[in-house]
């Protein structure tokens, strides 16, 4: 028994000697910065590619898979912004629930490319789509223009602890939080009402 315990403790010594110093061997700052840029580029590529797939594909299901890619990219950007809670919630709600439900609705559509979406869009439709795509620019352009050339303070974003987030939702942001729950309640009640009406009329 003593032999075993001494050999275990010597194993721990070995681990201490070789494992702990590895924590000192950090990647140099510029390399870490490069990695962050690379990750940012990858996520933006995911968002843009997924968005294009969602808009341009002739099949609704492929369009939905494009949308899932976009959501993945957005979740990645949240991670880069040190908001992992938002990132995981994005996946849990948008990919795990909303996309799956949209898929459910699409499945009731035929698996052929003969529907309305198969026809190539007219000029007016394309123009409208481009206009709609530029709409966010109207919102963000003044913001971007005002802060052009301004560099960030170079500090990594701080991660908000979960407890702080919860306290914020229940104190300072209580009104928006409650309003959103009222909206969800109304939507749910509406869904029940619609189904109810249909079930008992027949």
């Amino acid at each position: 028994m003593t032999g075993l315990s001494s050999s275990i403790s010597s194993l721990y010594d070995l681990v201490e000697r070789f494992w702990k110093p590895l924590a000192e061997l950090s990647l140099p700052g510029p390399a870490q910065e490069m990695m962050a840029y690379a990750a940012f580029a990858f996520y933006v590529l995911l968002i843009a590619g997924g968005g294009l797939a969602a808009v341009l594909s002739r099949q609704l299901v492929r369009a939905l898979v494009g949308l899932v890619l976009t959501f993945l990219g957005v979740a990645g950007l949240y991670l880069l912004l040190a908001a992992p809670f938002m990132a995981f919630m994005q996946l849990l709600i948008y990919v795990g629930a909303i996309c799956v439900l949209v898929f459910f609705a699409i499945m009731l559509v035929k698996n052929t490319q003969t529907g309305e979406e198969a026809a190539s869009p007219g000029l007016g439709q394309a123009f409208g789509a481009i206009l709609a795509a530029l709409a966010p620019l109207a919102l963000f352009a003044p913001l971007i223009a005002a802060r052009a050339g301004e560099l960030g303070d170079g500090l990594a974003p701080r991660e908000t602890p979960l407890a702080e987030l919860g306290q914020g939702l229940l104190s300072y942001y209580l009104l928006p939080f409650e309003l959103i729950s009222v909206i969800l309640l109304v939507a749910m009640a509406g869904g029940v009402l619609l189904a109810w009406d249909r079930r008992f009329r027949n």
Binding site: F88, M89, L92, G96, A97
Partner: peptide, 13 residues
């Protein structure tokens, strides 16, 4: 916990 729940959702998809 949240990470697991988020990625388990892919299974249904």
């Amino acid at each position: 916990v949240l990470l697991i729940m988020a990625f388990v959702g892919f299974e249904g998809l």
